[in-house]
């Protein structure tokens, strides 16, 4: 599979995020800055540099509807950036962390975001109108090690986390005054803030890259033992499936559709996993991928190879962008590692 476009932005990229219309990308070139590039006439141009952090930026997320960027850094801070005119204006978030922040993600309704940290905690941050700042509530004493990845369920309440203790956990993050109890969410909406819904103990090694499927029925995450785990019916009696593969471990996954997952990692080659009618997951050969995705969508390796190479194996922030079949320019952006 050849790369459709290759762009070399920096030697190494720790994390990145796309804007809602995929015309801009924000990434951290392995230092304390965040660069924003914009696509104009088939050329990427640097339009902004966000400087506020004083250590390496470990997580970026760009909210699709409210057009805000949240960044998390090893300096224990997080900033929410609002675009005002041509400038990005930062707002400090009081995370109350004493260790590095490792990952960040906006909730689907964009009224909250979650920050995973090396302090073995997860911060759920929300905007407080009265004080005019972002405050955080912590989920403490639930993880035995650093939280490597967080993922929001589409219902805006459930949050899945993976940690270097090899476990994947699902928490309720209901915050009074921010969330409303609705009957749709079912039993999970009764849970209090920070309540652990389920703990999945499938991996023997560190777990990374947790993601929910678009409908929220399936959860996928990867282990450092070259395994990928799919969990259906997250709740009291989850159904789990493990798929082992022979290549180097993955770092992150991305749901292309309800039945198909792309995994990227140290192997520098994206891998595709699909589920058949019976719901059994398997690894798809790379060549078969294009057949699967023929028609309205096609794979766009936005800046794979050279870029990925310079990415180094260790840094791999991966790319994860939702697929939009309506868009003609294509679906998945996957800046794989090589």
């Amino acid at each position: 599979m050849a790369a459709v476009e290759v762009h070399q932005f920096a030697q190494c990229i720790t994390c990145h995020a796309w804007s809602a219309d995929r015309s801009m990308i924000a990434f951290c070139p392995n230092n304390n800055e965040v660069h924003i590039y914009s696509l104009s006439q088939d050329k990427w141009e640097k339009v902004h540099v966000l400087q506020k952090h004083d250590q390496i930026v470990s997580g970026i997320d760009w909210s699709a509807r409210s057009n805000r960027i949240v960044t998390a850094s090893h300096d224990r801070n997080s900033y929410v950036w609002n675009q005002e005119g041509s400038e990005w204006v930062p707002t400090l978030v009081i995370l109350r962390l004493n260790r590095a922040a490792l990952c960040v993600q906006w909730s689907p309704r964009e009224n909250k975001f979650a920050v995973g940290s090396g302090a073995k905690t997860v911060c759920i941050c929300y905007y407080e109108q009265d004080n005019n700042w972002w405050v955080s509530k912590l989920i403490r004493k639930r993880h035995d090690s650093s939280v490597t990845s967080v993922a929001w369920h589409p219902n805006n309440i459930l949050l899945a986390t993976t940690s270097t203790d090899g476990k994947c956990r699902v928490f309720s993050t209901f915050i009074k005054g921010v969330d409303t109890r609705d009957s749709k969410a079912g039993s999970v909406s009764d849970a209090k803030f920070g309540e652990q819904i389920v703990q999945l103990d499938l991996s023997f090694s560190w777990a990374f890259g947790v993601k929910w499927s678009p409908s929220g029925n399936t959860l996928a995450y990867v282990g450092h033992n070259s395994m990928i785990y799919f969990v259906d019916d997250v709740g009291p009696s989850p159904l789990a499936q493990n798929v082992a593969f022979r290549d180097l471990p993955l770092r992150d996954v991305l749901f292309v559709s309800e039945k198909m997952v792309i995994g990227v990692g140290f192997d520098c080659n994206p891998m595709v996993f699909a589920a058949d009618e019976r719901g059994i997951c398997y690894l798809v050969e790379a060549g078969a991928l294009l057949d699967h995705l023929s028609g309205s969508t096609y794979i766009e390796y936005q800046f794979s190879e050279a870029f990925g190479k310079f990415y180094g194996q260790s840094k791999h922030g991966v790319s994860n962008d939702a697929i939009e079949p309506s868009r003609s320019r294509g679906g998945v952006h996957d800046n794989c590692i090589m």
Binding site: A100, G118, S145, Q313, K315
Partner: peptide
Amino acid sequence: EAALCLQNFPCQEVER
């Protein structure tokens, strides 16, 4: 080759 799957990982015990 298998062991060189390294990533940036800040210390869990000591701040910054």
